[in-house]
Nucleic acid binder design. Sequence first.
DNA 1: TCTCGAATAT
DNA 2: TATATTCGAG
Length: 225
Amino acid sequence: MLSPRVVRPQPHDGAASAGSSSSRRHMVDRVSEWELGLPSPAELTPVSQPLIPPALAAAFGIGPADALASPADAAGFLHDSPTSHLAPRFDEYDEEDEEEGEGEDEEAAAPGGRRGGGKKARMVWTPELHHRFVEAVEHLGEKGAVPKAIVRLMNVDGLTRENVASHLQKYRLYLKRSSPGAAAPSPPPPPFFPRFDVQRPHQGSANRGGYCAYPYVSYQKLGCD
DNA sequence: TCTCGAATAT
DNA sequence: TATATTCGAG
């Protein structure tokens, strides 16, 4: 599933299939460029795995604090691997849920993100993951960007069609609000991730093939500007 | 039967 | 507000 296979766009009548041969070549170049950023199977982090970043764990005194040798290392957790930024995270179980007495709190999230027989663990769309999502949407085009295709193109372990469908719904609403054709002049919509700046990678960047996506306070310090 | 997308729930 | 779930339609 997670082999770095070449995912070609589906032949559909959308924008992606239209255009001249040069634009098609351009698109292929873009796809190739995009594919370079895809994780290898070994690099993917299953969503079933606890994903508290070392820096966060250290900050809250969880786990081995000596995992971080320096502030730079602390920041480095975000791009330790090209795909560490891609793994969906799940919020901690709500206390409210525990009150139901199903004894699920000791169960790890199942590979699909579903806790034993209960509700799905809540997935967190990190800016990096969202960025990957947006790229998939843009790549697939307006008509091709359906949950199933997006999931396949994103190629993120554990990410479900339902996850993507839900996120896509929100994303479309966001686009709708921010479209220039929107009725009546209105203040610009807030960024999709108000608390984060997400930057595309650039040549020579320290982060290997991934995206610089940090809480906006810190990313500039990390040379990702 | 599967998938989509909007509506609704949490 | 973000994400999950439901539900009707294609």
